[in-house]
Simulated assay, not measured.
Amino acid sequence: MKRSVGLPLMFAMLCAASAPDPAALREQAFDVPGFADFLAVDGDTVWATNDGRVEQWSIKGKLASVAVPKPCGAMAVAYGSLWVANCKDGNLYRIDVKTAKVQAIIATGIANPKGETNVVAGAGSIWVPSDGAGKIARIDPANNKMSAAIVVDPGTFYLAFGFDALWAVSSDEQSLQKIDPQTDTVVNKVKLGKQPGFLAAGEGAVWVQEQRDGTVARIDPHTAAVSGRVTVGKTLIYGDIDVGGGKVWLRTTEDQTFVAINPASMEILGRLGKPSGSGALRYTASGIWTSAHDVKTLSWWSASED
């Protein structure tokens, strides 16, 4: 109870340091041939999945390209490497971010070979949804080997790490599962809305797209209970979500490119850009990266003219 009572104050403190201002953001778009989709921030650059490759981009243009048979899902940058799921062969690629060379290919299995999935880092490990029947692989970056297989709900494809826990969404079971990295077990679970998907942990809560409902759910990380919802549109299939700067940032597929949400009031602070179909989004303290594979662009949204 004490933790729940303190949440409004926590949100207020987070929002007080908010940046950037959504109203001030301007788009700088880059033409990207192929199918640029999922994103991972690496300093002042961003990595994007594409057809048969991952690419590194800055606001000056493309910097590197690395062959991966079928890169899929959201990626992670950790331990000096880019971690990418490869849906063609059901494995995990580890790529050196400095040299753009493949360091290792790890047999993990990929739970959703259609590609709507993600890889995350936390608690000294890399985590991969590895089996659609209900398993998550935990990878030790020190030796590139699986150290544990966590049993979860069937259809668990989406992950986030935060508040000292791994959070996993099963779209099939409409569940958010809290996993303790100390025991590699599910310690709490909450029922969600229709077709939950990508999620993010931060700004005082865990945030989940309830894609079929067009809503974003806010979950208390301590009680694992839903503490609020905001309706964004008719559907959120298939967008993306991130947190930072005192806001929740949601990539949408209809009505606009993305929206910014106040985590305390659940108010939509801004709707930015024109509708551009499916794509990804990642927050940085300087601006927002978005992709739009249907129109073959990668965009940098910032308040300055770089």
Results as ranks from 00 to 15, higher is better:
1 M>G: 15
5 V>H: 01
5 V>N: 02
8 P>W: 08
11 F>E: 02
12 A>K: 09
12 A>G: 11
14 L>A: 08
19 A>M: 09
20 P>M: 11
21 D>G: 04
24 A>L: 08
25 L>W: 10
29 A>K: 00
30 F>S: 02
35 F>R: 06
36 A>G: 14
37 D>K: 07
38 F>C: 12
48 A>R: 02
50 N>E: 15
50 N>K: 00
56 Q>V: 05
58 S>E: 12
59 I>Q: 11
62 K>V: 02
69 P>E: 15
71 P>M: 09
73 G>C: 07
73 G>S: 05
74 A>K: 06
74 A>I: 10
76 A>K: 12
76 A>L: 14
77 V>P: 12
78 A>R: 14
81 S>T: 12
83 W>M: 04
85 A>K: 05
88 K>C: 13
90 G>L: 15
95 I>L: 13
100 A>C: 06
102 V>C: 06
103 Q>W: 01
103 Q>I: 05
103 Q>E: 13
103 Q>P: 11
108 T>W: 06
112 N>P: 04
113 P>A: 02
114 K>H: 10
115 G>S: 06
116 E>D: 15
121 A>N: 13
122 G>D: 14
126 I>Q: 03
126 I>E: 07
129 P>C: 12
132 G>K: 00
135 K>R: 14
135 K>V: 02
136 I>D: 01
136 I>W: 06
138 R>T: 08
139 I>K: 02
140 D>F: 08
141 P>T: 10
143 N>V: 13
143 N>K: 09
145 K>Q: 15
146 M>W: 00
147 S>C: 07
148 A>W: 00
150 I>P: 01
151 V>G: 09
153 D>S: 15
157 F>Y: 15
168 A>H: 13
171 S>K: 03
172 D>N: 13
173 E>R: 13
175 S>T: 14
179 I>Y: 08
180 D>R: 09
180 D>W: 05
182 Q>D: 14
183 T>M: 07
184 D>C: 10
186 V>E: 03
187 V>E: 01
188 N>H: 14
189 K>Y: 11
194 K>S: 07
194 K>H: 07
195 Q>I: 10
198 F>P: 01
198 F>I: 01
198 F>T: 07
210 E>P: 04
211 Q>I: 06
212 R>V: 06
217 A>M: 01
217 A>N: 02
218 R>I: 00
219 I>W: 09
221 P>S: 11
225 A>R: 13
226 V>I: 15
226 V>M: 12
233 G>W: 00
240 D>N: 09
243 V>M: 07
243 V>W: 00
244 G>C: 09
245 G>R: 11
245 G>K: 09
247 K>N: 14
247 K>Y: 10
248 V>F: 02
251 R>M: 00
253 T>A: 13
254 E>R: 12
255 D>S: 13
258 F>W: 03
261 I>E: 03
263 P>V: 02
264 A>Q: 08
267 E>I: 07
270 G>N: 05
277 G>A: 12
278 S>C: 10
280 A>S: 15
282 R>S: 12
283 Y>Q: 03
285 A>M: 04
287 G>M: 04
287 G>A: 04
290 T>G: 05
291 S>D: 01
291 S>M: 02
294 D>C: 08
295 V>H: 00
295 V>D: 12
295 V>N: 08
299 S>R: 05
300 W>S: 03
305 E>M: 15
